[in-house]
């Protein structure tokens, strides 16, 4: 039986969670160091690695509706990169839910929420887009396998 509510469905397509940040050089260097990426281009050209933009997202995402499960997993991302992120850029990310579906698997009952994140520079140029999938799950005896 589906536990996807009308409240969840009405959130689809509604823009939420707008955040604006200025890219600090130390944030890029911390990200590069955490990934263990030795590429010198980030320092030489004052740019960020492609997936640095995760830094601009609320993780786990702020919920747009009540969710019965508190267990959360990252299901994946589909990125499109248009322009590099430079130090000093002011970037605004906006998020909207684009799809909600459910499955049953090793982690029990799971609700998948797909969100589109748009990243725009202060000159209104869109520099990237991410479709992220977050899995909210009930937990089950085979979890973690």
């Amino acid at each position: 039986m589906s536990i996807i509510t009308n409240e969840m469905l009405t959130a689809i397509g509604v823009e939420s969670n707008t955040r604006t940040y200025r890219v600090d050089p130390s944030a890029i260097s911390q990200f590069v160091e955490a990934v263990g990426d030795k590429n010198i281009v980030y320092e030489l050209e004052h740019i960020a690695p492609p997936t640095f933009l995760r830094y601009f997202d609320e993780v786990p995402p702020l919920l747009e509706f009540p969710m019965p499960y508190t267990n959360i997993l990252d299901g994946g991302s589909d990125w499109e990169f248009y322009e590099p992120v430079h130090t000093g850029d002011e970037i605004t990310s906006t998020t909207e839910v684009t799809k909600i579906f459910e499955k049953t698997g090793a982690l029990g009952h799971m609700i998948f929420v797909v969100r589109r994140h748009r990243y725009n520079r202060s000159d209104s140029v869109q520099i990237a887009q991410q479709l992220s999938t977050t899995i909210y799950y009930s937990g089950g005896p085979q979890a973690g396998t």
């Binding site: 690695p49 997993l73 994946g76 590099p84």
Partner: peptide, 21 residues
Amino acid sequence: AEMLSNWAGHPTALRKLGVQY
């Protein structure tokens, strides 16, 4: 993304990346 950037020679060469965990 690091693997692809190293292979291509520059991170801005990466235009799309889809991953499922």
